[in-house]
Design a protein around this nucleic acid. Sequence first.
DNA 1: AGAAACCCTGCCGTTGCGTCAAGGTCAAGC
DNA 2: GCTTGACCTTGACGCAACGGCAGGGTTTCT
Lengths: 244, 244
Amino acid sequence: MRIGEIAALVGLTTRAIRHYHHVGLIPEPERRSNGYRAYSVRDAVLLARVRRLTELGLRLDEVRDALADDAGRELAEILDELDADLARQEAAIRERRCRLSALLAEPPDATGPVSPALAALLAQAPRTDSPSAAQDREYLTLLDATSTGSQEMLALLGTLVADPAVVELYERLDALAEAPADDPRIAPLAADLMAAVPEELFAAIPEDGVVVTGFKEALLAEYAPAQAEVVGRLMEAFVERGRG
Amino acid sequence: MRIGEIAALVGLTTRAIRHYHHVGLIPEPERRSNGYRAYSVRDAVLLARVRRLTELGLRLDEVRDALADDAGRELAEILDELDADLARQEAAIRERRCRLSALLAEPPDATGPVSPALAALLAQAPRTDSPSAAQDREYLTLLDATSTGSQEMLALLGTLVADPAVVELYERLDALAEAPADDPRIAPLAADLMAAVPEELFAAIPEDGVVVTGFKEALLAEYAPAQAEVVGRLMEAFVERGRG
DNA sequence: AGAAACCCTGCCGTTGCGTCAAGGTCAAGC
DNA sequence: GCTTGACCTTGACGCAACGGCAGGGTTTCT
């Protein structure tokens, strides 16, 4: 048989068979005088074995092991391992689908998929066009995605965010966009902000995730000078009171 | 932030982030005077979004689509598609695991994994050391793997194989290994073989799979001259009576 | 001054083939 | 005899999403 014939017989492509030769999984058969590979039925039996094994999900080197082993002993071992691997994959897929369905259940959000906890929080927040508030919401998605144990933080933030008074605070922060770094409104705003934060929140800063060298500076760089003053004071308060 | 810092922040590797830049998924940030990339918190938000999407199983080009789309509308579409894809994968894995468990339940066989139907057939066959019988068993694994609808054939073969008389037929075929092509034992053996084959089997040859140009010649090439005579006559009978 | 811990670019390796590219071979029809 | 079409040959690149290494520069700590 020529390669196309044996390929049709065992249900592989000619390219796959040549590939198996190339990587040494299957020895090259004799050649006819014109250079064509001449396959025997024995080769077909071997290739069919390979096909069954690859269809089970074995990689080519595992197929090689399974074929090399004269007894079927190690094969059982490989299959056991493979089954465990497939079980892991199946669990992973199931978890992804689970999270997917949670996402699909919620209304789509331009910020991309977020945890259910954060989605609930954002839905609960009062509607406002404040740029600072929008910025904060984005940063919350960052915290949501990176910090383990952000659940409790979000719960605490819920009490803060539900307060319609925060809208006014955001607007006062917005008003500092063009102000100089020594604007007199800075100190009272920082004080009011700190007063609005519930005490437990100071202690709930996750130690991993957001707390990374360089993050503070990068965060302050996002704000105008006067705003950065305010945010900087808040952050200092968090560091002091959270870590004592 | 430098690249290592933002990588730690969002839970990616520096290599992955550079890769995203390379393929244009994420724009390159400004550089510091020393050439280091300078990341902002906005970049971190973006990267966190990318991470969430890739963790859901989206490919990078799908992530790009999801990000480019200003609304979250197309995202839902992509996620729907993704869920369907995951469902397919899950089903495929489950089927593989199903077949795997069927294989693991049976005693391991040096010929590799075979269908349950064939395994039952082989277990039912009488024990013999006949080389021809061994050869035939190998060829059966080929037929098992390649022909769709080989189930009925195997059922019909069950009635044939269970007959202890076939052992004698195999031994008579073995005896022709060194015989010339005009040995007088050829004709009677061919006749007895044909008589042993149940009538329905002639009609049950699957049209796909084994029937491939070049297969007959290859099969005959596996046998010694006198044996090839016998097998050739059998095959002719099959062709005539199966298709007549 | 030297070591540690960062950063940079760029290229190869992974898995299992698909897909050209650029030819040589063979049977059939004009 | 010549073309056409369906085969075959080797060889090399492409893919997905990075990991790892080479070979070099920067900053910082000690």
